[in-house]
Design a protein around this nucleic acid. Sequence first.
DNA 1: CGATTTTCCTACCACTTGGTCGGAAAGTGC
DNA 2: GCACTTTCCGACCAAGTGGTAGGAAAATCG
Lengths: 216, 216
Amino acid sequence: MPVATTGRERNVNSSKTIGRPREFDVDEALDAALVVFWRQGFEGTSLSDLTSAMGINRPALYSAFTSKKKLFMRALERYYAIDAARTFKVVEEPTARRVTEQYLLRSVEQLTNPRRPLGCFVLQSALVCSEENADIAAYMSGQRSMQEDLLRARYARAQKQGDLAADEDPASLARFVCTFRQGLAVMACGGMARTKLKDSVRRMLTGLYGDASAAK
Amino acid sequence: MPVATTGRERNVNSSKTIGRPREFDVDEALDAALVVFWRQGFEGTSLSDLTSAMGINRPALYSAFTSKKKLFMRALERYYAIDAARTFKVVEEPTARRVTEQYLLRSVEQLTNPRRPLGCFVLQSALVCSEENADIAAYMSGQRSMQEDLLRARYARAQKQGDLAADEDPASLARFVCTFRQGLAVMACGGMARTKLKDSVRRMLTGLYGDASAAK
DNA sequence: CGATTTTCCTACCACTTGGTCGGAAAGTGC
DNA sequence: GCACTTTCCGACCAAGTGGTAGGAAAATCG
């Protein structure tokens, strides 16, 4: 469930604001922060890493984003809006099978987007943390399981509509698909090529639906 | 390829060493360090976290293990020797199919060992890192791909022996199995129950080998 | 016993961490 | 022009980081 709405702030270009106008674009700065968190993880990213990537200085960061953790949460929102939106839309596909196929194929596209860091922000930005930041690791884990919930709900609906076998367990199926997709994310993070990931997806779909699966 | 040999140091109980005897057991301390790195990741673990868990003070740590990174590498060795050894032995199974089945089932056992932190040390201790520790993240990524190499070699041998279909691609198969196993590791790290992981493994094996797969 | 070797441990090091203060600067409305 | 509002930014903060120095302590050897 992407948290939606990026860019609440009035922008530089919107005419007539009172006080000195902000000299940087909030969304651009946020995107720069997102990329650093994505590459180095929450705990591997220092305030200095952030400010130099964002092109602003420390007090500007704090006045715009309050704290490192809040900035991270804003970056997550932006990730959902910019990078993950297309993947989440697979629940709109007409059949359960199409949902699975498109979920995995779009995941691969997303995980190996050449214009972005490799892998999955939700996975690698905070898989584990020190006690001090355990809340963030737990939050990200919750975000991951929400993807599973989304699929489970979609499969359950498909079952009601007779589009999924009555003896199938939607929760188990969703869990299985998500588990595999997390594996794709790990491999993508390690630099595995898109073609190889797609080959694995092809195998997965063959296992689920038989040889006649569409490999796009 | 587990790096083997833990415990090169002369131990407290081995009689007659010159100089003041060490007051802590090196392997016990190493194990305590392993657990902390496992739970919090390399960058999420501070020297203070380590010394308090190991029950020693800072100079003792440095005299025994040289540096934080070297200690981490020693912990990795110990992980292979203590936690992963049984999983790696699956290559000794008689058939390719048995190798796959046992690899996944033993992985689940290992990932949810109730006497250990959840998940996979090799995955979660350093999935991504700051630039300063990028070497560690890269090293761990290499360790993960060595698991894939191990399986690929085993499948290739099986193919030579006629135990794996001639038109099968051992590299692709190994990649697929390893990708799924990394997914299991992520889910285990997030607290997914052993029974649910085994259910996913059952699905995976059914997809690979058909319904008559042994679920142990 | 004293000399030697090794470990233990308090105190310390320079540097980085996340975060803030307060005045100068750049806009607005009147 | 002047009051007002907001941002910019150098300087600063306490606390924590990985790592070390150096003397006291505990063992062995002769």
